[in-house]
Amino acid sequence: MPDILVAADEAAATELLHDAETTLGTLSRSGSRSLGPFNVSWSASAFLAGGAVDLIVPNVIRISNCELHYNLHFAFSFDLSNIIPDFCLPQICVHIPFIGNVCTPRICVNWPTITIPVNFSDVVRFTADFTLNAHLSGSNWLIDAVIVGIPNLQISVAAAAILAALGVAAGAILLGIPFIGPFLAGAVVAITAAIGIAGITGLLGPILSLFVSGLSFNIYRQPRVFNVLPASLPLDPAVNINLNSIAASVSHTNEDELLIAVEIS
């Protein structure tokens, strides 16, 4: 029997997890990559919330429908000339009575390199198992719930929405380019087709996976020298004990419980 034994049922474990999610706070990542003719730079922030806890013997916390709330900013840069053919103003000749015949030269408009910003926010839910890891880190005892593997994130709907947002943003950006008007609709279609759902999925999946890969929630943190009573009167120093070992597990009787066993001295 350990010196101190703490047990929490699934309801208390759920509260513990939700507190850990709040403590984890908002995570940020950024990066860039090539996507065919596009260079994409991105920044993302995300936080976790919710989820139902199922405790599984011997040391697993299964979190169902954990919510990953994310906010993405993309900047798609590309040479528009790689997407749509350049536009040429043909030679035009007019007759001006007091000047004579005048012809303009044929001029080809080189489409510019443009950057399309796209912002997108959404929530994706996932279910994953976390194993309990009690360990000493410096002078603190920690119990972390560490994700097992990388959960499968359902992002097809989000990818379609991002592609649609890209199309809308592209239309707005392109509108400012001289002579693009007659080709605007076709250009937007060409841009979204060049990336495609598969491209967005291939971009979005790895970004979101960064936030869940290796995900770890800290559910317990106490100093190895544990303060029982603080110093009070001038003649009453603090009372401390040593937490010599911590072990975390899940037990099953008539209900599942998270157990924390502590040896002290």
Partner: peptide, 28 residues
């Protein structure tokens, strides 16, 4: 279960109580 009708259980074994008493009276 340890928690029974509640959500949290805490139990200190007599060896732990003795450690606590030792810490208390050693400090004070």
């Amino acid at each position: 279960s340890l928690t029974q009708g509640e959500h949290i259980f805490g139990g200190v074994h007599e060896t732990g109580i003795n450690d606590l008493l030792r810490a208390f009276f050693t400090a004070r």
